[in-house]
């Protein structure tokens, strides 16, 4: 729709709708002002109106326009923006119903930490970080870590199920951007910030970094794949078995 990326998230239509409302409002105001402007320039140019009026227009129409703009802004704010933030950004679905994934950003890659079949993330410790074999410093002595697996730049999710993604960074600020999911969230070092959404379309798209993070910022790209539930289960089984059979060395996907 009018140049926006495809929408593949349950909440995306609402954002796009408000976007449309805003642009209609802007267009009406701009055209209204524009017509007034051009008429004034033609009608009151020096040659057609040699003597200026000390008193201009005496009309309350402009005040009415200003009040109308204020009212529309209040409506957009109170009816759309604040409720949307409250239900989509501030509130989260029940963790039992949702799939949970951690995304740990670093210069210039997305580490995606899946908790595995047990649904519990293993402990991590920065002292255990090894750039090649253990980029997240997962502590293999933790029983919950056994079935965890990590992919690089590959985020796979099933369709139709809420997913909560916990975002954190190893080094500098990044920004997790999924254009087709209408999701964008700054990643702040020292904080873990969750976002959630419900994918509604199967297919492949991209993860972008939207916050300048250094030289490789422009190529800090990941891939998002939305599967059917069956395909996703199959993919998950493959990943988990790889993780268990080959131990610590299989973190590279």
């Amino acid at each position: 729709m009018w140049g926006l990326p495809d929408n593949a998230a349950a909440h995306g239509a609402e954002i796009d709708f408000v976007m449309l409302l805003f642009h209609i409002l802007m267009l009406i105001l701009f055209i209204g002002w524009g017509i007034f402007f051009l008429v004034a320039l033609v009608r009151f140019k020096k040659t057609s109106h040699p003597k200026a009026d000390y008193h201009g227009i005496r009309s309350h129409f402009s005040s009415a326009v200003e009040i109308a703009v204020a009212i529309i802004e209040i409506i957009l704010l109170a009816a759309f923006s604040i409720p949307f933030w409250a239900k989509q950004v501030n509130a989260f679905p029940n963790r039992k119903d949702a799939l949970e994934v951690r995304v740990i950003a670093e210069q210039f890659a997305w580490n995606i930490h899946y908790p595995g079949p047990d649904g519990i993330f293993g402990k991590t410790d920065i002292q255990l970080i090894d750039k090649q074999s253990n980029p997240l410093g997962i502590d293999q002595s933790d029983p919950h870590a056994k079935d965890d697996f990590v992919t690089i730049n590959q985020l796979h999710l099933p369709i139709g199920r809420p997913v909560i993604i916990y975002l954190s960074s190893k080094d500098v600020m990044h920004c997790f951007s999924l254009p087709i999911m209408r999701v964008k969230q700054d990643i702040i070092p020292g904080m873990s910030i969750p976002v959630w959404f419900v994918p509604t379309k199967i297919g492949n798209s991209e993860i972008g970094c939207a916050q300048l993070c250094g030289l490789g910022h422009y190529r800090m790209k990941g891939f998002l794949t939305i599967h059917t539930q069956e395909e996703y289960d199959k993919w998950l089984a493959e990943q988990s078995s790889q993780s268990e059979s080959s131990g610590e060395d299989s973190f590279w996907n």
Binding site: F37, A40, L41, F44, K45, H49, P50, A52, G56, S62
Partner: peptide
Amino acid sequence: FLSLWGGSI
């Protein structure tokens, strides 16, 4: 904008 109205531009 309103200041233009009635002027001798």
